[in-house]
Each structure stands twice: as structure tokens, then as C-alpha cells.
């Protein structure tokens, strides 16, 4: 079955990011296909390459970033939600003249249309709220 996943909660102040990650791992292990993961609202913080939790804690953003790269998943971060929360790629850094960019390599900034289009063409939309 083909799934699209929507995540809304921030990685360390809500359980939704970790639960969604475990759901996706299990779905793939069971032979399902994750066509896209869409990070919206505070979940855009999973896309930061700068999160640096203590070494004895689970680095949820890093786990998401490597999971998406390892499984060739289309990882999309809502651009409007990301920009207002300080998640920028190089292009947006230059556009808004900011001192740095931090979007993880395996993820892309794009619009909400990617969530809607992905939901229409997938068998299941599963959302993980804040």
C-alpha cells in the first residue's frame, strides 16, 4: 500500500515526530511504500541540520533525515511554515539575506500543494498531530 505521511508536531515538545518515524519504519518493514513525508507546522524543526541534543538522547531530527535519505523517500518541508520558523535552504538564505542556512540535505522546501497532491494519489494519508 502507498502511504503519505503528514507530521505537525515539533520533535522534542510533541511525541508525533518519533511516533511517525516508528510508523514509517514498520510500514516499510512490512513491504508498504512511503511515497512522501510532509513536514508541516512545528514539525519543520525535524529538517534542521543544527539540532544538537545531548549524546545520550535520541536525535529525532537526525533519525528522520537519515531515514528519508536511506529509503529514497520524498521528504518535503512546507516552505511557508519553515521560513517563519527559521528553517532555510541556501536559496532562501540568500533571498532573505540571513546569516546561515540549515535545511538538511535529504529534505526539500516546497508548498502545501505537495501534501494535497500526494494525498490524492496515495492509498492512505496518515497524519501525526501536535
Amino acid at each position: 500500500m502507498q502511504y503519505i505521511i503528514a507530521i505537525y508536531g515539533a520533535p522534542f515538545s510533541s511525541q508525533s515526530s518519533q511516533t511517525a518515524l516508528y510508523f514509517c519504519r514498520e510500514a516499510i518493514a512490512k513491504g508498504h511504500h512511503i511515497s512522501r513525508v510532509f513536514f508541516y507546522q512545528d514539525a519543520v524543526h525535524n529538517a534542521s541540520s543544527l539540532a544538537s541534543p545531548p549524546q545520550d538522547e535520541t536525535d529525532i531530527p537526525a533519525h528522520w533525515q537519515s531515514f528519508i535519505a536511506d529509503n529514497n523517500i520524498d521528504g518535503v518541508v512546507c516552505i511557508a511554515a519553515a521560513l517563519r520558523r527559521g528553517i532555510l535552504n541556501d536559496e532562501e538564505q540568500q533571498r532573505y539575506v540571513k546569516p546561515g542556512s540549515n535545511l538538511a540535505n535529504s529534505l526539500n522546501l516546497s508548498g502545501l500543494g505537495q501534501l494535497i497532491e500526494g494525498a490524492v494519489v496515495s492509498d492512505r494519508l496518515v497524519s501525526f498531530g501536535a
Binding site: Y40, Q41, A80, A81, R84, G111, L112, G113, L115, I116, E117, V120, A130
Partner: peptide, 19 residues
């Protein structure tokens, strides 16, 4: 919180996609 605005934005984009 921004939740209400971001929910409304989602509905508007979906309408723009002819849903």
C-alpha cells in the same frame, strides 16, 4: 498559536487543487 491559520491555509490550497 498559528494552528488555525495553518489549518485554513491547507483548506485554501486544497480548494486551489480543485478538491
Amino acid at each position: 498559536s498559528l494552528n488555525a491559520k495553518e489549518a485554513l491555509d491547507t483548506a485554501l490550497i486544497a480548494a486551489a487543487f480543485d478538491l
